[in-house]
């Protein structure tokens, strides 16, 4: 079988539609993941025994199971268990939120705890309540240290969306699969899909570099 790159342009509109779905799931999923991760990470870093145990259980449950199992659970098991029925797209977004949230929680915890204890003491010593010390002193410093590992997680989550092929979400990989099924042009199609992913992750990397450069890492 001959490789014929000229067939690719014809599929570009379809691939762009797929990429749009991938971006949509990733962006919404990561926004939720950052919020969950921030809360769970701070619970781990500063919570009492019980609060810490709750966050720890969540993080271990998610980190200890594959994301495919998690999305299968959300999509197929939740309706049976709790009579909650969700569409594939919502299940996909929710899976990224919950999954990325667990990893981001550990990133947040590490970043906050890496800030010297002396700075917290200095803030407390001038009479600030602990939450203000976190908001005005430790938080801004931790945020700078958060960015590099957070970028890593963004890329992992973006690529994880390809696994939602198992519940039939029409994202980029699924789109590639559908085109393939019609013409069996494996080399051309999968190369095109891979390049699409590289463009997405590359854009993300460049954006994060830019933010990192603009902020002095202290």
């Amino acid at each position: 079988m001959q490789v014929d790159w000229s067939i690719i342009p014809g599929f570009i509109p379809q691939l762009i539609e797929g990429a749009k779905v991938t971006i949509y799931i990733t962006v919404l999923g990561l926004i939720g993941g950052i919020i969950i991760g921030l809360i769970a990470g701070l619970m781990r870093a500063y919570g009492g025994k019980i609060i810490n145990a709750i966050a720890f259980t969540y993080i271990e449950l998610i980190r200890g199971t594959p994301i495919v199992v998690q999305v299968m659970f959300l999509y197929f098991a939740l309706p049976v268990l709790a009579n909650i029925r969700i569409d594939p797209m919502s299940a996909a977004i929710l899976a990224i939120m919950v999954n990325a949230g667990a990893y981001i929680a550990e990133i947040v915890r590490g970043a906050f705890l890496s800030i010297s204890k002396g700075l917290t003491e200095a803030g407390l010593a001038i009479g600030m309540p602990h939450w203000k010390v976190l908001v005005y002193i430790v938080g801004p410093l931790a945020f700078r240290r958060l960015i590099p590992p957070l970028g890593n997680q963004f890329i992992v989550s973006l690529k994880d969306t390809s696994l939602f092929i198992v519940i039939g979400v029409g994202e980029l990989t699924r789109t590639g699969q559908e085109i393939m099924a019609a013409n069996f042009r494996a080399v051309e199609i999968w190369t095109a899909v891979a390049i699409c992913y590289l463009i997405l992750t590359g854009t993300m990397t460049i954006a994060l570099r830019f933010i990192e450069k603009r902020m002095r890492i202290l």
Partner: peptide
């Protein structure tokens, strides 16, 4: 917190806020 406002502290390692 009221006590801390009445009692300023200076540390061995300065602990200035670097940002």
């Amino acid at each position: 917190r009221e006590i801390r406002q009445e009692a300023g502290m200076v540390f061995q390692q300065f602990n200035l806020f670097p940002q």
